[in-house]
Nucleic acid binder design. Structure first.
Lengths: 153, 153
DNA sequence: ATTAATGCAAAGGATTTGCAATACC
DNA sequence: GGTATTGCAAATCCTTTGCATTAAT
């Protein structure tokens, strides 16, 4: 969920372009992040990384995530703290989106809209705010859960 | 930053209406939250409460915040984690707003817009999502900081 | 009087840090 | 070879919990 489209093709490219060393650990972490199909938290990322290379340490995971965040290559999500205070991460694509978190079933939906883009533009223009990161999260009940218990309050 | 306008006049009223006991500690906490001019974190709230009544314990602060959150009377903010992972709280007013966090000077601006309201409506209608809480936070540089260092990138 | 709410102190989860050892460029 | 990066283990920050005590209704 961001604003500028990353220019490099891969995270590894961005690392070397910045003069950062491409260690074995980083290679593994970047690949996992790039191919992730779901929102990963630090512990999950560590686990997946260790499945490939047992040497990887938790501190390295956090340090790598920190770099990626600062470079604007990943976004950090809270997902409405549905499962504790940990953070989730996703690679930044060209299209920002909103995360809808269902308090009932726990599902996370992604939603994008021209109105969302319009809102960001408006903030930049009317407020003169130079947007770096945007995070919009909505908590409530997804359509499935709403329909399922329409009889209950 | 929410969706429904609270119906009760005061937080204390809401507590008694729900059959919750109005203890001395809660009275103090609710008053502070109601009259707060800035975004409070749990530690700040505890400090202000202790200034009035030294007996108040941290656990009580957290437990009270939890209740208020569940009742939808306050909103929980991250403010882009500008100052660590703690949460900030603000009383829910009728008008939802976006928080703009300046990474440079740390200032938090509040922004509201019909486009924001339109976006929420759209999410509810098109996605069929029953919205309980909305949190939108934007990180970047405020207009003052942008102007101040217009020569630097 | 009953039971919710509190204080205390300890536990918990997530993340960060200092520093010596390692490995990339 | 020089320096960035890592692993380790401890520290830190924020928040939560169990349980005996207190106080609101």
């Amino acid at each position: 969920m961001s604003t500028a489209t990353p220019t490099s093709r891969s995270l590894a490219d961005a690392f070397t372009a910045k003069g950062l060393r491409l260690t074995a650990q980083r290679r593994v972490l970047l690949e996992i992040i790039e191919s992730a199909t779901s929102h990963l938290d630090a512990a999950g990322l560590l686990q997946l990384a260790r499945d490939r290379d047992a040497r990887i340490n938790r501190a390295t995971v956090y340090r790598t995530l920190e770099i990626l965040k600062k470079l604007g290559l990943i976004d950090e999500l809270d997902l409405m703290h549905l499962n504790g205070e940990k953070h989730y991460y996703e690679i930044r694509t060209g299209r920002d989106h909103i995360h809808l978190a269902c308090f009932e079933c726990g599902r996370i939906e992604e939603y994008e809209s021209p109105v969302f883009d319009q809102l960001k533009q408006e903030i930049a223009q009317k407020q003169g705010f130079s947007i770096g990161v945007v995070r919009m999260e909505v908590g409530g009940r997804c359509s499935i859960c709403v329909r399922a218990n329409s009889r209950e309050q």
